[in-house]
Structures are given as structure tokens and as C-alpha cells.
Design a protein around this nucleic acid. Structure first.
Lengths: 252, 252
DNA sequence: CGGCAAATTGACTCCACTCAAAGGAGGTGG
DNA sequence: CCACCTCCTTTGAGTGGAGTCAATTTGCCG
């Protein structure tokens, strides 16, 4: 059966990636992710509980609203979008998630996932069984600290989007936020690819798709950016920072 | 000197409240707050690290942006507002906090407070030195679980306000959210006092003060609520729920 | 009673949305 | 390899919900 084949393939892939030494202890995202701050010994213990997912195709869900929560997911490669659908059927994009970032934190309290997570391109993730993580955290102070830190960071970030900002402010902040996150991952801070369609950016920032298009256009005319479809280059970082006046903003 | 008198009074009050057995182990907010899920023995250990603040006057700050983070605060009585001021000097209200709720969670990551917390009326709080809490959490699994739970809940809630909703939807959701939280605290779910001025409600919901006023007025005309200054009565809960169509909303 | 901040009310404005249509880009199948 | 389809993006025109500005009214407190 196809299903069995898929499972076999999946299993094969998992072994493969494990063998390819993609473990926390020598992961390039180590210092952005859960393992940050752990020493050699503790890293080994973390490695023992972290599992690797196979390849996730663009459009596949990592989890959906209502799913039983049993693990946190760390983005290993690719980009994910989290979103909800409200009673009226409207989608609300909650965030975009780059390698090293954690998904599922909002599900701990209720033991059920509160949002959907979908891959925006070919992606992969690490699976961190929450039970195991908490048990380990109780024994490894630096891991406990890091978990609290990650949760707290998430709360602090969500405040950034709370404000009542204009379309220009929001988009400038969004681009700068992405830029900031790309730097930390060793990519260019000024030239990158928008993995997400305009519609998702707009929805995330509470704007209409057309508004995003228009503002990008205006930014380009004003020499702030150069944009061609999904490819974007930040030309005038200072100018963008002036626009994104909000103090906190690390929006993205 | 007046200052010394105030301090003496403060100190006296602190002793008083301690003697009045306001400890986690017999606090009426026990099941909404940090102590939830702890057994008798563990509660005693928690009591040993939790300190009580004196009375906090309306308008006093519990902490401010940039303050060194060393403790979480649990609201014991009264109501707090958290807010930030952006680069352009605009205030952004992040939330209103009722007894049993935790303040300062966003400061864990950076070890500095990321927002200001101000009392909206006469209030008091419990001080929970974070160092002590984490140490205890490593030894008391149910406490660690509860801390993760509280942080996660906070993240899940902040998603509720993220959406792009109309003024009506937001205000209806806001009122229902307050109602929900009052129920859990043993107060009337349909009749309560808005501790915060219109300006703060408006800012929190990203509306103009005038809009809040007008919507309240319209809600009243439509028989959804009865409002008189800060005193409010929810007349038609179903009607409000229909308006607050967003699935998640526990906004407040 | 007077002074002040909070809240309300009305008139007008504007930013971003909606509606509509026309180009691209990329993928699929014949 | 091309034709076709679909989705994404852009652009234009017009609208409307909420904001701004301004003037009152109300309640509170010294």
C-alpha cells in the first residue's frame, strides 16, 4: 500500500538524517534554538530525546487546531506559517517561523494545538516530546532556563504586533524584523526571498493584499527597497527604521 | 518625615497581611494562579519564597521598562494595566490584569522589564523572586508544569487580539473576556465595574476613545448592554457572543 | 463653587478596504 | 513544446469605517 511505502520512506529518511549527524550538538542553529546554553554533556541528553521529522512538503501541515499536543516542533529548514480560522471562516496569520524557532508553545496550557502550522516551502523540523523536555529541564537547569526564556521571548514579541500602526510602519517593521532574523541565521540582512505570498503578509499585518502591493511599490519609488516578486532588497535600512518608529518592533 | 511615616505604615501593613494568613496555601485565588495543582507540602515550599507587597496606590508603577527583572508579580487585589511607549511617544496598552494573573512574564528572556505596569486602582501584589521559583520548579514537577502552563496561556491569549476585527467585534469580545474572568473570580459575570477609563480600553483595542463611546452607546440602544459611566451590565450575552465572532477571543 | 479630567456628541476627513480588471509566473497535460 | 489554467500580483476607481477635530456635558474632588 502507498501508505506503507510512505512510512517506510519516512523511516528511511529519519535514519538518514540522524546518520548525517543532524543532532542538536552539532546543529548550526544550536545557539538560536532550544540547545542554547547547554554544555556538551547536557546536549547529549537533549539529543537523546529530540527526534527528526522527514521532509515536509510545501502546503503540508505540521499540526492543526485541536490536535493533541505532545511535542514542540523546532523549524530545522524552510519556513512555516501559523494561523487560525475564526468562527466566521476568516483566516488570521499568527506568524512566520524560520529555522531555529519553536512551534506549538501556545498548546502547552490546554494540551491541544491552538493554531495550524503549515509549511510555506519544502521544510523539515525537529520533534521535541514535551514530556521528555520537561523531565530533562527539571534535571538540567540551563535547559529549564532556556525553555522559560523561549516562552518569554515569544510573549515579548507578540506585544510588538499589538500596536496600532499605519500600513507603512507595519511593513517597514516587518521587513526589518525579517532582516534581523536572517542576520542571526547567517544570511544576508539586506537581500532575501519572501517565502510567503502577499496575501499572507497582508493578513499577518492586518492589511489588504492590495495595500501591501501598493506600499512595496511606494517604498521602491522612495528608494527604500527594491522588490521583484518575492525577491527583495533593503536599500535604505535607516529610512526603514525611521518609518518603523515603534520602539519594540521586531515584527515578523 | 512623611517618607518615613509612609515606610512605617507600609511595613506595618505588610506584617498585617502576612499575619492575616494571606499565603498561597489559603489564598482564594489559589486555583487561578501559580499555586494551582500543588499539594499541601509543595504549597508550603512555595509560601516560603513568595513575598507580599504592601498596598499599591492607583497610579503607582509596579515596574517600568528597563527595570532589572528579578521577580514575577501576581496581582492579589485591584487591577493593573501594562503598557509601552513607542519611539514616537505613543502609548500602547498591552493588557489589563486581574487578581491571580501574573505580570512580568515578558521580562524573563531579557532580564529587563519590557513594559510598564501601573495600578488602575488601589491594589496589592505578590512578589515571586524568579530565581527561587525556577529552583523550586526544578524540584517540584507540578510547579514547573504550572509555570509552563501560565506562560503558554499567555501566548495563546495574545493571539486572540491579533486578528483584524471591527470595532463592534472587538468591544463585544472585550466585554465577554472580562465577564469570563470575573466569573472565575467569583464575581458577577454580567454586572461589573470597568476599572479602566475609555481611553485605555480604546488604546488596548486599537480604537479611538470616541469610537468606544459610540459603540457602547449603540450596544445600549440595541439592548446588548446597560452602561453608566464605569458601571456596566451585560444584558444580552448571546447577542454579544454573536458579535464577537472570532473563535478564540478571550480578549482582555 | 470652581477647576479639571473623563466622557459624549456632531461634523468632517482620510487611510485603507473593496470591487474590478488586467497582467505575469509557474505548473500541467495534451 | 505549446496551450491552458490557476494563482499571484499589480493597478485603478470609488467607498466606508473609524479617526480627527472641536465643542459640550458630566462627574469628581479640592
Amino acid at each position: 500500500m502507498i501508505c506503507e511505502e510512505a512510512l517506510a520512506l519516512e523511516s528511511h529518511r529519519r535514519l538518514d538524517t540522524s546518520r548525517l549527524c543532524i543532532a542538536c550538538s552539532n546543529c548550526s542553529l544550536r545557539d538560536l534554538c532550544v540547545p542554547m546554553g547547554l554544555d556538551r554533556q547536557d546536549l547529549a541528553r537533549l539529543d537523546a530525546v529530540v527526534q527528526k521529522s522527514g521532509t515536509i512538503q510545501s502546503g503540508d501541515h505540521l499540526f492543526s487546531v485541536g490536535d493533541e499536543f505532545h511535542a514542540l516542533y523546532a523549524v530545522r529548514s524552510g519556513c512555516f506559517k501559523t494561523y487560525t480560522i475564526d468562527r466566521a471562516g476568516r483566516e488570521q496569520v499568527l506568524g512566520f517561523h524560520l529555522p531555529g524557532e519553536l512551534l506549538g508553545l501556545d498548546a502547552i496550557a490546554s494540551a491541544r494545538h491552538q493554531c495550524n502550522a503549515i509549511a510555506l516551502d519544502t521544510a523539515s523540523s525537529c520533534v521535541m516530546p514535551f514530556q521528555d523536555i520537561t523531565q530533562l529541564a527539571a534535571q538540567v537547569p540551563s535547559l529549564q532556563r532556556q525553555m522559560f526564556r523561549l516562552l518569554s521571548e515569544n510573549i515579548a514579541q507578540s506585544h510588538a504586533l499589538a500596536g496600532d500602526y499605519s500600513a507603512d510602519e507595519r511593513l517597514a517593521a516587518f521587513l526589518l524584523g525579517l532582516s534581523e532574523r536572517f542576520i542571526r541565521r547567517g544570511y544576508s540582512s539586506t537581500e532575501f526571498n519572501l517565502t510567503m505570498p502577499r496575501r499572507d503578509i497582508a493578513n499577518y499585518l492586518r492589511l489588504a493584499t492590495e495595500t501591501v502591493s501598493r506600499v512595496f511599490n511606494r517604498f521602491q519609488k522612495n528608494g527604500l527597497i527594491e522588490v521583484e516578486r518575492r525577491q527583495i532588497r533593503l536599500v535604505d535600512l535607516e529610512g526603514l527604521r525611521d518609518l518603523a518608529s515603534s520602539a519594540l518592533l521586531q515584527v515578523a
